[in-house]
């Protein structure tokens, strides 16, 4: 084993000793070695010193002024609402519905229906009026009997046509 790999192995053993992951037997072996080897003993002491000092450095408490500032954050920093995905999804859905509603013809209102009925009634009375007038004109031109025969002829033609189909 080279000096370097031996040193690496020793350092790894010291690390595990400090971590508490060295078995009691291994720890005992290391201690026995350290009694024979002053360099190893010094390495272990050094490692312990550093580890203890690091732990003793510990956590530095935040100064009172900082603590006060941190507690004031909610009142001094307004949280931006942000478009969280449920909000964005709701907005998108509303938009789709609005477009769909605008594209679908709206059902007629009561006023429109009433107006349409009036217009239809007017149209029907117009047709009725002109229908009667036309019949009168025909009767005057060709006589009532011929008019009747003409109408009957049309009726028969229609009836034959419908029977053959």
């Amino acid at each position: 084993m080279t000096d370097k790999s031996k040193r690496e192995q020793t350092q790894a053993a010291i690390d595990r000793l400090l971590d508490g992951s060295l078995s009691p037997d291994q720890a005992e072996t290391l201690r026995n070695q350290a009694e024979q080897d002053t360099h190893l003993a010094k390495s272990i002491i050094n490692a312990y010193q550093i580890q203890n000092s690091l732990e003793n450095l510990g956590i530095q408490p935040a100064p009172a002024d900082l603590k006060r500032r941190l507690r004031g954050i909610p009142s001094s920093h307004r949280r931006s609402p942000g478009l969280a995905w449920p909000v964005a999804a709701t907005a998108a859905l509303s938009l789709v519905i609005a477009v769909a509603v605008l594209r679908t013809p709206a059902p007629p209102s009561a006023d429109e229906i009433s107006q349409a009925r009036d217009e239809l009634a007017l149209a029907m009375s117009y047709l009725r009026h002109y229908g009667v007038q036309t019949q009168n004109e025909l009767q005057q031109e060709i006589g009532g009997t011929l008019t009747h025969a003409l109408i009957e002829g049309i009726r028969e033609g229609v009836s034959k046509d419908s029977n053959s189909t």
């Binding site: 408490p61 935040a62 941190l70 954050i73 909610p74």
Partner: peptide, 17 residues
Amino acid sequence: SLRFRRLVNAYEDQVFS
């Protein structure tokens, strides 16, 4: 705000340190 305050209490020293 209460949740925020709890997190401040728990971690302000660690963050500053």
